[in-house]
Amino acid sequence: MNNSNGYILRYAAIMVIIAAALLSSAAMLLKPFQERNMAIEKMGGILDAAGIHGVTTDDMINSFNNYVTEEVVINQDGKVVEEYKEGAKENGKAFSLGLKEQYYNKLQGKPYELPLYILTKDNETVYIIPMLGTGLWGPIWGNIALKSDLNTVVGVYFDHKGETPGLGAEITTDQFKKQFIGKKIFDDKGNFTSIEVVKGGAKKLPKNMQIHGVDAISGGTITSKGVDAMLKNVLESYLPYFNQLRKNK
């Protein structure tokens, strides 16, 4: 067998080129299927926040189109940039808007645009706000659903890239998510309070603040803080829009 350095180098080079060509063509071919799966997962997250569970994967696009009545894109001043009512909802601008870039723009003090979904469930309007934040090991994201009073939480949905299983990753469990149902993001005077994720439990808060707090996860302090910061940062960004909506009522 030829074991000269030249042969080894040529062999390695050709092998790597073939492997690269094979993998990139596979990635290109399968991309549309993978993107569809991701879109379906995103829809599932939106419906889940609104308390619509158990929709099968095959049924997802249909259900999503039925429940979502409107997709809105707002800018940093709370002005509506685009309203999207007709047609397949996954084609709307709100659905394809990249949260990462928008919140990065916000951080840089640049103009930004944010998506909002309006659902009708049991004849009630539900506002769904997509969220993005940082956990311990990577990004965390989710959705929060508000009643038409723009104050009471209908439900939440969380997901994450790689939080610690059993600790930070517990934010995806029903046990954690259930706590948010019925909580309020404004106090009696109409001041924004967000929802605090409290280490040691929401009962540590003063009585009148307990409606604005949930229990953090033991052993998942940094992830819990990430959720807390995410809720605050995201909801804050929608305040101008909420104000305008209230004025118009």
Binding site: L22, A27, F33, Q34, N37
Partner: peptide, 16 residues
């Protein structure tokens, strides 16, 4: 590694 990545991509596309 090439085979594994191919299988992973196929699974992601068809049994997400």
């Amino acid at each position: 590694a090439t085979m594994v990545i191919l299988v992973d991509q196929v699974l992601k596309a068809f049994v997400y």
